[in-house]
Design a protein around this nucleic acid. Structure first.
Length: 889
RNA sequence: GGGCUAUUAGCUCAGUUGGUUAGAGCGCUUCCUUGACAUGGAAGAGGUCAGUGGUCCGAAUCCACUAUAGCCCACCA
């Protein structure tokens, strides 16, 4: 083996082998299925830390299950991402000085497909760098033929069921993207604006003095004066006595002369502003509802691009909405209608894609009725059929589901699934294909031809295809073996920010169209943040690029470090240094492997293997076997509970501390080296397989280097270690007591090393150690202790012996270090005094505890006994120290 | 306004049915380069577990309140 591990070479070598040999590929049929669909990244996307986190978790679970014998499918793919992708291509067009309108719809869509062909593979390539064991033969795209079929089918079916409808509705509208947005595509941000107080004269009021043109008026407060020309009423609260006399009267809309009524509605809050609100049904969602209740006219005064139209008045027509605001305010002031202006902070909606201020706009859109879909989705989580991990997310899910709003699904874009609704002569038909639509149309009017049918211009919200992902990717609406076998999927792993966008809707779609939930467990992880806890973003420039990290530290290092900092309960803060942990661990694994190989070359491992050893093993050998057994069981349990981080920590500690720090040190000078190495060989192979889900590349490379695997074999498909059988454990004499005995022995070794350090005895100096114990087994460890302690002698004296030497108490016995060298008496005396003080504090506490009747009577016996033992021990220690203090006095 | 979460060592975090003197990694201090590994080894310093009150023999852990921070939902023109 080379002195240094070449991660880059190993990673470049193994991934293509895995892929080519079909190790990622799953076939329905045998065994127990385990399936996961990947949250499809945007086809325009590049791999960021969020993906790295998300996919590392999935790959760990998937590799673990696959090795554990499950028939495992991890299904990859990408999302066509309507707005995002269209924006990217439009941007490219702009560089050529063209707009999409110049190309026309068909040519533009063609152009987007070309873009996809050329650049759409970026993220998919990057996912391979991470080591994702996704079944690439099943790679899907939300806009591919099959998924598109599923979308058309779903739309048609919902329409037939009356769950899809087209309605005049107030929607969030992005003037820059030129499309409606769903509620959750709008981000609210703080805005420093103004509140303008405007007088609306009561009809019939007399002209007043200058600056106050009418004597009788109502005053409204508004943040959006530019919508004034669209007002069709002013409203007061029905309980507001101040204005009761006005209700039913008419007022004059300033600058237009139009007369509008004063109405009363609960929506108005008495305390806010003047307690009088202008009602603009076409430009505000609340006003829209008020307008519906009071049968008010809806006057749309704005164009789709954010400019004013003719209904705003000739003067403002064509003006941008913000320009218009300024102009209108100036005119109100000039006309004496503006009373005063206040600063006012509120929240304003912005487009989540392009950040433009969102407009409320009246338009015809398609909607899905969500209530009937939500009810079974709530039930599925309540009943436990679907489980959130961590469980608390279900609360947030319920909260949303129970207050669900209809989903606006039409988008005024060109890139996406075109709505399968066709119009002719005032009729609408909805069908999966144009042919089917024509047939339906003919049933209404036999004379209709294809040329008469006009398909709806809009496309569907991207999430309208994503919500079908778990089954559309498996071939639905066809009946397929995949669906039969792999649906419902087992785990869905995603971040909290798309619970509503995606997860909740998948649950609804799965239950509605498949009659089964799309997945059993929803695993929600945190977001990756920077060292200061800020979200990673391009504009802040605080993003870490996973590809750079792979370049610098290796994919295994990235994966392991991510796993180690991943907590499902909170967001993860990362900085570059964190990835050194993973890299260092890779190096450690490599070096340990080198050590084993070198040792084996010098003294070949016992070839007969572990079975031949019977009950002749040393305590240290039993200990490592026992620890290995524990590690296997522990990791299996932790992964089953989605405790990726705890698992990483457990396997890290097992490998580094148990194997490298202790067992390898033991094996160097083991009494029966071939046997010790044979054990190491077995333990190491188990460790590699435990590590494989976290660090697939280095484990594969080392497994081959060490000859665990031949060419053409892979650790990916090796059995995940289960620990040793009861039979093996009995034959070798593994038990808890021996395990504890060796832990105690290590404690003694550590104690002696600590004594050396405290008394400044150089590590190379041979010392004399004494241990006070009556345990006959302990005495049998003398040789091994000598080596570990670098002691020329280890003597045993009866427990309770009282030697005038520095000592430490351990579970193994009291360890004494004979001081032959020189010691700074004054410093020692001071240090001992301090320690005595500490001890006295503890003894006092422990005595009080044991004097407490309630404790002695109520606490479990073992706890009380332990407390007694501890107290005794510390009293003894105190005595020792006092003696030492005299020695140094 | 409604909901959720967090607060443990200088930093990032464990601590899952309440039970030894609260742990890990990084950082810091001291010592160690005769080969598995300095991307390493040995030892060490560092915490009244945000605060107050309560339940209990016993609380980082359970309850209440307070403070601070963060997230989500809904928004008052």
């Amino acid at each position: 083996m080379d002195k240094h591990y070449d991660a880059k070479a190993a990673e470049a070598k193994w991934y293509p082998i895995w892929e080519k040999n079909g190790y990622f590929h799953a076939e329905p049929g045998k065994g127990e299925p385990y399936s996961v669909v990947i949250p499809p990244p945007n086809v325009t996307g590049i791999l960021h830390m969020g993906h790295a986190l998300n996919q590392t978790i999935q790959d760990i679970l998937v590799r673990w299950r696959r090795m554990s014998g499950f028939n495992t499918l991890w299904l990859p793919g990408t999302d066509h991402a309507g707005i995002a992708t269209q924006n990217v291509v439009e941007k490219a067009l702009r560089k050529e000085g063209k707009r999409r309108q110049d190309l026309g719809r068909e040519a533009f869509v063609e152009r987007v497909w070309e873009w996809k062909k050329q650049y759409g593979g970026t993220i998919v390539h990057q996912q391979r760098m991470l080591g994702n064991s996704t079944d690439w033969q099943r790679e899907r795209f939300t806009f591919d033929e099959g998924c598109s079929k599923a979308v058309a089918k779903v739309f048609t079916r919902l329409y037939d069921e009356g769950l899809v409808y087209k309605g005049n509705y107030i929607v969030n509208w992005c003037p820059r993207c030129g499309t409606a947005l769903a509620n959750d595509e709008v981000e609210h941000e703080a805005n420093h604006g103004h509140l303008w107080y405007v007088r609306y004269p009561v009809v019939g009021s007399e002209k007043g003095a200058a600056g106050e043109p009418y004597k009788d008026y109502v005053m409204v407060a508004t943040t959006r004066p530019e919508t004034l020309p669209g007002d069709t009423a002013v409203a007061v609260n029905p309980k507001d006595e101040r204005y009761a006399h006005l209700v039913g009267k008419m007022v004059i809309l300033p600058l237009t002369g139009r007369e509008i009524p004063v109405i009363s509605d609960d929506y108005v809050e008495k305390e806010f502003g003047t307690g009088i609100v202008k009602i603009t049904p076409a430009h505000d969602p609340n006003d829209f509802l008020v307008g519906k209740r009071h049968n008010l006219e809806e006057i749309n005064i704005m164009n789709g691009d954010g400019t004013m139209n003719a209904l705003a008045g000739a003067k403002y027509e064509g003006m941008d909405r913000f320009k218009c605001r300024e102009a209108l305010v100036a005119d109100l002031e000039a006309g004496g209608y503006l009373d005063h202006t206040e600063d006012y902070d509120n929240q304003v909606g912005h487009c989540y894609r392009c950040h433009e201020t969102v407009e409320s706009r009246l338009s015809k859109q398609w909607f899905v009725k969500m209530k009937p879909l939500a009810e079974p989705a709530i039930e599925a989580v309540k009943s436990g059929e679907i489980r959130f991990v961590p469980e608390r997310w279900s609360k947030i899910y319920f909260n949303w589901m129970e207050n669900i709003q209809d989903w606006c699904i039409s988008r005024q874009l060109w890139w996406g699934h075109r709505i399968p609704a066709y119009y002719f002569g005032g009729n609408t038909v909805v069908a999966e294909t144009p042919e089917a639509a024509l047939e339906k149309a003919k049933a209404i009017d036999p004379a209709v031809t294809m040329a008469d049918l006009k398909q709806d211009e809009d496309v569907l919200d991207t999430w309208f295809s994503s919500w079908l992902w778990p089954f559309s990717t498996m071939g639905w609406p066809e009946k397929t073996a995949d669906l039969d076998y792999y649906y419902p999927t087992t785990d869905l792993v995603t971040a909290q920010d798309i619970i509503f966008f995606w997860v909740a809707r998948m649950v609804m779609a799965g239950l509605h169209f498949m009659g089964k939930p799309p997945f059993r467990n929803i695993v929600i992880h945190g977001i990756v943040r920077d060292a200061q806890g800020r979200k990673m973003s391009k504009s802040l420039g605080n993003s870490l690029d996973p590809l750079e990290l792979i370049e610098q530290y290796s994919a295994d290092a990235l994966r392991f470090s991510i796993a180690l900092i991943t907590s499902l309960d909170c967001d993860s803060k990362v900085s570059k240094e964190k990835f050194e942990i993973g890299r260092n661990f890779c190096t450690k694994i490599w070096n340990a492997a080198r050590f084993m190989q070198m040792q084996e070359e010098a003294a070949p491992a016992n070839a007969e293997g572990l079975a031949a050893f019977g009950n002749a093993l040393t305590a240290d050998e039993k200990h490592i076997l026992y620890a290995t057994d524990l590690a296997c069981r522990k990791l299996d349990r932790l992964l089953g509970e989605y405790r990726i981080q705890d698992g990483a920590l457990a396997v890290y500690d097992f490998f580094w501390t148990q194997i490298c720090d202790w067992y390898v040190e033991y094996a160097k000078d083991a009494p029966d080296k071939p046997r010790a190495l044979a054990i190491l060989r077995d333990v190491f192979w188990k460790a590699l397989r435990l590590l494989h889900p976290y660090m697939p590349f280095v484990t594969e490379e080392v497994a081959h280097q060490l000859g665990y695997l031949k060419d053409g074999e892979t650790i990916m498909l090796a059995e995940f270690p289960k620990g040793y059988t009861d039979g093996e454990k009995a034959a070798w004499g593994l038990d808890e007591a021996t395990y504890a005995f060796v832990n105690a022995k290590r404690e003694a070794i550590t104690a002696l090393r600590a004594l050396r350090a405290e008394y400044k005895v150089p590590p190379a100096t041979w010392v004399k150690a004494t241990i006070a114990t009556d345990d006959a087994k302990a005495k049998g460890e003398a040789d091994s202790l000598k080596r570990a302690m670098r002691a020329e002698s280890v003597e045993f004296v009866p427990a309770g012996s009282d030697l005038a030497m520095p000592s430490k108490m351990t579970a193994f016995g009291t360890v004494y270090l004979s001081l032959e060298g020189l010691v700074d008496k004054a410093a020692e005396s001071k240090r001992i005094a301090l320690e005595l003080q500490k001890l006295a504090g503890f003894i006092k506490g422990a005595e009080a505890k044991l004097a407490n009747k309630a404790f002695v009577e109520n606490a479990p016996e073992a706890i009380v006994a332990e407390a007694r033992r501890k107290l005794e021990e510390n009293r003894e220690k105190e005595g020792q120290l006092r003696k030492l203090a005299k020695l140094f006095a």
